[in-house]
């Protein structure tokens, strides 16, 4: 059973929750083979109940200590542009669709999401284009995101400091 995990991080992003639970989005997700939708809605004013989408199994919660388990169980992660959420999903090796909140202008967090999109590590859209993106997206173009190498840092420092 294909699972989609949606996360908005520590903030709120009602537009995303609204878009992803819209009739068109849910139908598109179903058509793509996803049957379960898990929403982490943060401080948002929307906390959808399980019965608002009759065609898909839906769960929603505000916060958890760790969303690692939800990411692990997901086949697709839809996330806000926050660096923490993006890196966590990519680090777990999950296909990631980042939805940009165009109401937040000049948000420095966008810088990372944009770059990772240019490097083909994630897909990128806005709430308005979400359904269209879900319909046309090709997850096979995504490149794996290799973990950073702190060992290189340690080696450099050892040499510089004479350790």
């Amino acid at each position: 059973m294909g699972t989609v995990f949606v996360t908005v991080g520590s903030t709120s992003f009602d537009d995303l929750i609204e878009s992803v639970t819209s009739v068109e989005s849910v139908q598109t997700l179903k058509a793509c083979g996803y049957e379960r939708l898990v929403l982490q809605v943060g401080r948002g004013s929307l906390l959808p109940s399980a019965d608002i989408c009759p065609h898909i199994s839906l769960e929603a919660f505000r916060f958890k200590n760790s969303i690692a388990e939800d990411i692990k169980r997901a086949d697709l992660v839809i996330s806000h542009a926050g660096a923490g959420s993006c890196l966590e999903a990519l680090g777990a090796g999950k296909p990631l669709l980042v939805v940009v909140n165009d109401k937040l202008m000049d948000n420095h967090q966008l810088e990372l999401a944009r770059q990772l999109n240019m490097d083909s590590h994630l897909l990128y859209c806005t709430c308005r284009t979400l359904t269209e993106t879900l319909r046309t997206m090709d997850l096979s173009v995504l490149q794996p995101f290799l973990p950073g190498q702190p060992k290189l840092f340690a080696n450099f420092l050892d040499k510089a400091l004479g350790v």
Binding site: L87, E111, L112, R114, Q115
Partner: peptide, 15 residues
């Protein structure tokens, strides 16, 4: 010695 590592979030501009 001051060792600073800029966050990975910073792609084009320093914090």
């Amino acid at each position: 010695l001051i060792v600073y590592v800029e966050s990975i979030c910073r792609v084009h501009n320093l914090s």
